[in-house]
Design a binder for these strands. Structure first.
Length: 365
DNA sequence: AAGTCGGGGAG
DNA sequence: CTCCCAGACTT
């Protein structure tokens, strides 16, 4: 079948818009915690919208909510966030994923503090000069924060618009094709509510497995007419995942202290803490220790487990090692690591597998 | 245009 | 298991 696409006829879109807003008034999510509230200043309310939009990138609402509350308690204003240490920000972000967002958020807060006097700027160009804010996030901030029409075209909106227009274009072309529709819709009345409405509709009714029997547009929908709900929008190309084996070593001394390694390379989990890794589980552990610093007492292999990322499947083979330490640091894999007690490593922002392992050994002990 | 960034919810 | 989420950034 050709990639057909219904042209945006004004009358049809006005009807869809009217029905969408009616649906939103009756069924939409009206009480999200980052909606502007009177107990906060206007600058804080805009800050909340910006913060939530960064957190919501590729992340669902229910996942974001507890992180959002924690952030605005720890960092009540953009300037507070800018003045915080990166370690604090990473710790607050721990477990939310896509840690570049946390670094960009922190850098963006400094831009807001230094260039915009601590307040999120009002115009589209200035907003996008803030690190981590692209076209979609900029549109969301402006439409919700300032009630001005800007084209929202995120994953939800793409799905809705592809369905109602019957657009079968692959992912890369779809956004370009739908952009005129996005502008047309956003230019109607109630731009702030529209942004929330179209995304709520995509998230709850026109979802991956759509609830067409609850949809106000069923009789008009091209995709429903041809029963192509499972083909529109077109599936993303399946990417090939790498399989990587990891061999983390949990090194514990007689005081219950542990050894941690902070990641530095500009790849995943940037600046987060983890247990040091062996090249393989075949390494002779005894040879890795400087006997002046510690004596190896015992080793134990823990059950392996998987950790899945967007493009990597990790299979993790952990080993726990008990040593008797003589000094406050340990030489291991040609590096010197300090012994870290629980009070300290609790404050570290750690990778998800590292926290999983900590939970395992704490349950054991 | 394609690749690189986490983690979790839902089916 | 699979799919995908209020995507941005780099190359």
């Amino acid at each position: 079948m050709n990639q057909f696409l219904a042209q945006p006829q004004g009358e049809t879109f006005e009807l869809f818009y009217a029905k969408l807003m009616q649906w939103f008034d009756d069924n939409g999510r009206h009480n999200l915690p980052w909606k502007p509230q009177t107990q906060y200043t206007e600058a804080q309310n805009i800050y909340h919208i910006w913060l939530s939009e960064i957190m919501l990138q590729q992340t669902q609402v229910v996942t974001v909510i507890p992180y959002f509350f924690n952030f605005i308690e720890k960092f009540p204003t953009a300037t507070d966030l800018a003045n915080a240490e990166q370690e604090e920000v990473l710790k607050a972000w721990e477990g939310l994923g896509y840690y570049a967002r946390a670094r960009n958020l922190h850098a963006g807060a400094k831009i807001i503090r230094d260039k915009f006097n601590g307040e999120i700027p009002l115009n589209y160009q200035d907003i996008q000069s803030i690190k981590g804010v692209g076209r979609t996030t900029a549109a969301a901030i402006i439409s919700q924060g300032f009630n001005r029409p800007f084209a929202i075209l995120d994953g939800n909106v793409k799905r809705v618009m592809a369905r109602i227009t019957g657009a079968m274009h692959p992912e890369k072309q779809l956004e370009k094709v739908l952009l005129p529709f996005a502008y047309l819709m956003s230019a109607q009345n109630r731009p702030d509510d529209y942004t929330q409405a179209i995304m709520d509709f995509g998230a709850t009714i026109c979802s991956k497995n759509p609830k067409c029997n609850q949809c106000f547009w069923q009789s008009h929908c091209i995709t429903y007419h041809y029963q192509k709900m499972d083909q529109i929008p077109a599936k993303k190309v399946k990417l090939i995942k790498k399989d990587i084996e990891l061999y983390p070593v949990i090194i514990q001394n007689q005081n219950g202290e542990l050894i941690f390694h902070q990641r530095t390379q500009e790849t995943i989990w940037h600046n987060l803490y983890e247990f040091p890794h062996l090249d393989s589980h075949l390494n002779e552990l005894e040879a890795l220790f400087n006997t002046d610093n510690a004596k190896l007492l015992s080793t134990q292999e823990l059950p392996s487990f998987k950790h899945v990322l967007t493009h990597i499947n990790y299979e993790i083979y952990p080993i726990i090692i008990q040593v008797e330490s003589y000094k406050d640091a340990l030489q291991f894999n040609d590096q010197i690591y300090p012994w870290v007690n629980a009070e300290t490593y609790t404050t570290y922002a750690k990778t998800k597998p590292t926290n999983d392992l900590l939970n395992i050994i704490h349950i054991q002990s």
